[in-house]
Design a protein around this nucleic acid. Structure first.
Lengths: 244, 244
DNA sequence: TCCGGAAATCGTGTATACATTCTATCTGAA
DNA sequence: TTCAGATAGAATGTATACACGATTTCCGGA
């Protein structure tokens, strides 16, 4: 029993329900009835409704037209399209950063992140510091979203990334023993470097298309997981939310 | 006193508040206090909170970190960026429609919309059926969003369009006496035709860039309104929500 | 004057009772 | 048999009282 430290019942409930949805415990299409659910969570309907409405903002629930909420259904097509959308939006962030000029502090932060990411690869062939890589990768994408200087763009990039399977770290393969995965990390890192360089050189179109292709890395990993080794799928938490 | 016909108090309140925000009556940054606002609207706090949470989903309000809601502030930069984003997303819809193949019914619907739009231009130079054009234009963009076949993409396109100044009909100039405006409608219509043709010919990149450029038509009109005739600005309802 | 802390005030969080609406089912008549 | 309308149940909509937390204000002491 993990007792959440969140201040309000509603905030705690957001976390609990989000966890249940993301983990696949609550499957797509499940309608959330207020009375029994509130009883189960030991809260009243008021904070529960608040929580559900926040999860709707987040894209995990949908409102039914005559009232009530259902868990949103995600198909494998949605996963592919969400990754595509992230690519498009990050591409736009990169292009605008290049075209309009990026804030120097942010750009140099991105460049130093690239260096730090380099250090995650050991001298030996299959040693990679995954935890560190994953953390730095997340920050790289965060900086990229900010780099356009546009709140509107940043907001929308972050919005798509909130979907668990569209996040930049969703399909970071944590198994260096698989050759294809190790290679994909190196390719991705090379793309990081190129994106930063393109933005610095004010090459908008190049920056945009590099960022798009970079998102495709995630899609390639996804395809690999699905096609090559079917049993891998259950090891990828981001896919638990996806309907079969 | 316009008495809304909406079923619930919350739904009615969504409409009332949305109207006040869009019209600029409630300006960006204004905090909405539950008790006095509920009193003013003659409802209780419960449906009011529901309404505010829906408006947050819509992007017109924001939640404060310690509770409460404020009216979201939009700057002129946000307007420009929202139009850019619409271009990017509609461009993606167009590209995917071309690459993946569009549903024949939708494509032919789009093509007949182009024909109908043609008929809005009279033989004489400055006669245009604005009402009809505006309606058909809205449907064209709606069909475009659907044409990708991707629910994810459609959803996000529609999301951006929900912002009043980012909607495809936001800056449709309704004054045929201004030469620049009349010409912009003809250019836009030619772009409609080209977008449909590119999708039909499976020319993804062309379709994408045409759709992007098409959104720029809105930006050009916006620039015209702001630069050429300052007094025009107050006649554009979409801009009432924008902070000065 | 400045600072810390207590108290009051303001505003949201929560529970709960009651109202309303929607839906599914049943009944009766054509 | 079928359909219309009634009806019962289930689910959400709404009002309201009270709880809690945050913020501001005011007071006393250094």
């Amino acid at each position: 029993m993990s007792q959440n430290t969140a201040a309000t019942h509603a905030a705690r409930t957001v976390i609990e329900l989000r966890e249940k949805i993301i983990s696949g415990q609550l499957t797509g299409g499940t309608r959330l009835f207020e009375v029994p659910l509130a009883e189960e969570l030991q809260i009243s309907r008021t904070p529960l409704r608040d929580a559900m409405s926040r999860l709707t903002e987040e894209g995990l629930l949908e409102r039914l037209k005559n009232g009530g909420f259902v868990v949103r259904t995600f198909t494998m097509d949605d996963v592919v399209d969400a990754i595509e959308l992230r690519g498009v939006l990050e591409g736009t962030a990169a292009r605008l950063a290049a075209e309009r000029g990026a804030a120097p502090e942010l750009l140099s932060r991105m460049e130093s992140l690239v260096s730090e990411l380099d250090n995650c690869f050991g001298k030996a062939h299959n040693t990679v510091d995954f935890e560190q890589y994953s953390e730095l990768n997340a920050e790289f994408h965060q900086v990229l979203a900010s780099l356009s200087g546009s709140d509107m763009v940043k907001r929308e990039v972050e919005r798509v990334c909130r979907l668990p399977f569209a996040s930049p770290s969703a399909f970071l393969p944590d198994r260096s023993d698989i050759v294809a995965f190790r290679r994909s990390l190196q390719v991705a890192q090379e793309q990081h470097r190129a994106i930063a360089a393109a933005i610095a050189a004010r090459e908008g179109s190049r920056a945009e298309h590099l960022a798009r292709e970079h998102a495709r890395t995630a899609r390639r990993n996804l395809d690999y997981v699905l096609r090559q080794e079917a049993n891998l799928r259950d090891q990828v938490p981001s896919l638990a939310i996806v309907s079969n």
